[in-house]
Nucleic acid binder design. Structure first.
Lengths: 344, 344
DNA sequence: GACTACTGTGGGAGCGCTCCCATACCTGGG
DNA sequence: CCCAGGTATGGGAGCGCTCCCACAGTAGTC
């Protein structure tokens, strides 16, 4: 009836070949300890001989678990952020899931319609859990997913005291490290180009910047703070405003490499040399940073490791949701690291 | 027994509520025409009232189709290529699949072990078809997948006369356009940094370069050809070799932006100005190209559109494999476009 | 008026598993 | 020697769909 899939062996056939019952084969496949060594090897041989592979749909139906998780990336974000970010997240998630023998369902959401479709398929029980990347402060999706009874792990948080399990990097530490470094280079009029302030990640980096100034005994100065939006053009605009307001600034901490690139081009147009006149530091340590002229000092986040951690946490949650009781929401904050190059 | 999934309505319940049989509800859900208008609306109401969503596992088991396709990306490649490439492919694929209500299973393969695991899960009938990105000349995977009876579409081809359906960009045209442009700028000693020549894409771009020279009446000169590997460092090495061999060169066509970036840094170290002394052209029109100093002239590929096309073709193939007979292998070659910036 | 030819509908039979109860066999303690 | 308390195993009963056959009803045909 269907062209393909014709001759795939079933559990039943393996059982017949091994001279045992269906249940026993199932136990062997699933690694149950209640099987004698002898039987186990007999079944293993039959499996190998027939080239048996369990049918996933049947497993999912009978066992009500899919061995798949969804990774959701809001499309608007994918354009804002330095794009390699998401590839690194995907890489980490993928590696960890492969090790746990789980599949990765990738979902880019680019419209309200697609968002609803996504909720539909969660309800269709296609996945055992959900990973959500780069959520905005007011995003209701994490809570919606939980209402459906599915485990969730966020990449980044929506607010300081996030209630949903998440993996974040130390964004406050990133801002502090950048400022401390610039101070160490003898700079004292240090400006910052922030991300969109409705995102926690942007507020946290700004907070770190301020903390860094305070720790260095430098006075806070709101004239040295200009809001960007994580895009190159946004960085450009913010940099222009800063030069207007504080022509005497001698350093800039941009909350992303891409914005730093925008800032750099404005500085060039304005005849400011980097790093001689203005030192520049970004965040992400992306390809962009390495290729800039001069190469950009940047705060590295362990993005791939964040992906791995997210996957591990989610697998945990999935386990517990079917076994043990829940406990306090899990959270992981991974350290960042300053990579010094020629721009500072 | 399972915490979640408890109260989801089933087909049966919808049928009861609508006062019809199970088969009828199934027909409505699947849009069969053999249902009276009256019944259809009654069922639709019951579906809405109960918030019914078909269980995907049950559908897959009974209907032997999954409404999911796999996108496979060899991990080694993901590092070589300018990374945004894959995000754009993913974007295009994802958009087209979403429109067709199909799920995207993303698989990064980074080891022989993972490759085998992948073949396992194809056999587990988790997907209806496979998209394969950036295959090498000797990659047996496409044929393996076909042996399993699954439709495949490649991104790029392994050889000129590829037998498996594929979507490629006009790489020969890319090389020709680059050379024609450089000739138009008055350059006559035009070198090229190629990709790894075991990949068709690299050979095709090189072929285009040669064709471009011929068309301009310039003599071919193997001393002006240097092999890279699509990495920045590879571009650097290749550029050094070129400067050694032909110090008088006045233009370089690099087969990728990332290699162009490597070449650019070597040129800077060697004191050659871009574009005054040496004009530079890359391929990909990636972020890297825009951020370079000077911004890089580059041949743009419609990457996202390639992703879309791949998805459309695969959906086609899936349809036909369960309905009609096969026909000649499908192939699509999308046009490239030169984006002129300050480097040439 | 009986026959064929639809259209619309109900529901049995499975898809290939997992779950779990029942059974068979094997210990060792009283 | 009997019985509790293991351990290993078989196989029935679903999981929630799709497929398809059967059948009722309504026309249209000679």
């Amino acid at each position: 009836m269907n062209g393909r899939q014709s001759g795939r062996p079933t559990l039943e056939q393996v059982a017949a070949r091994a001279g045992v019952g269906r249940g026993t084969v199932s136990r062997v496949i699933n690694g149950s300890p209640r099987v004698s060594e002898q039987t186990r090897t007999a079944v293993a041989r039959a499996v190998a001989e027939l080239g048996y592979v369990p049918n996933q749909a049947a497993r999912a139906l009978a066992g009500s678990r899919t061995d798949a998780v969804a990774l959701v990336i809001p499309e608007t974000e994918a354009r804002l952020f330095a794009e390699p970010y998401f590839l690194d997240i995907i890489r980490g998630v993928s590696a960890e899931l492969a090790a746990a023998d789980k599949q990765l369902l990738l979902t880019l959401i680019r419209s309200e319609q697609e968002r609803q479709r996504f909720e539909q398929y969660l309800a269709a029980q296609r996945v055992d859990g959900v990973l959500l990347a780069s959520v905005h402060g007011d995003d209701p999706l994490p809570d919606r997913v939980r209402e459906l009874g599915l485990p969730v792990v966020l990449n980044g948080r929506r607010v300081e005291a996030e209630r949903v399990p998440y993996v974040d990097s130390d964004n406050i530490g990133a801002g502090r490290a950048a400022v401390a470094h610039l101070v160490g280079r003898g700079r004292s009029r240090i400006a910052t180009v922030t991300g969109p302030l409705d995102m926690y990640v942007a507020r946290a980096r700004l907070g770190g910047y301020r903390a860094g100034l305070t720790e260095a005994g430098l006075p806070p100065d709101e004239g040295l703070v200009s809001a960007g939006d994580f895009t190159e053009e946004g960085g450009r605009r913010a940099m222009r405003r800063l030069l207007d307001r504080r022509p005497d600034l001698d350093a800039v901490f941009a909350a992303s490499d891409v914005m730093a690139a925008g800032a750099r081009s404005v500085l060039r147009e304005a005849g400011r040399r980097v790093p001689e006149d203005v030192a520049l530091v970004g965040v992400d340590d992306s390809t962009v940073a390495r290729l800039m002229d001069p190469p950009l000092t940047s705060v590295r986040q362990p993005i791939e490791e964040m992906g791995r951690t997210m996957a591990r946490m989610l697998i945990q949650e999935i386990h517990e949701s079917t076994e043990t009781a829940p406990e306090e929401p899990r959270r992981h904050v991974l350290p960042t690291e300053l990579v010094v190059r020629d721009s500072s």
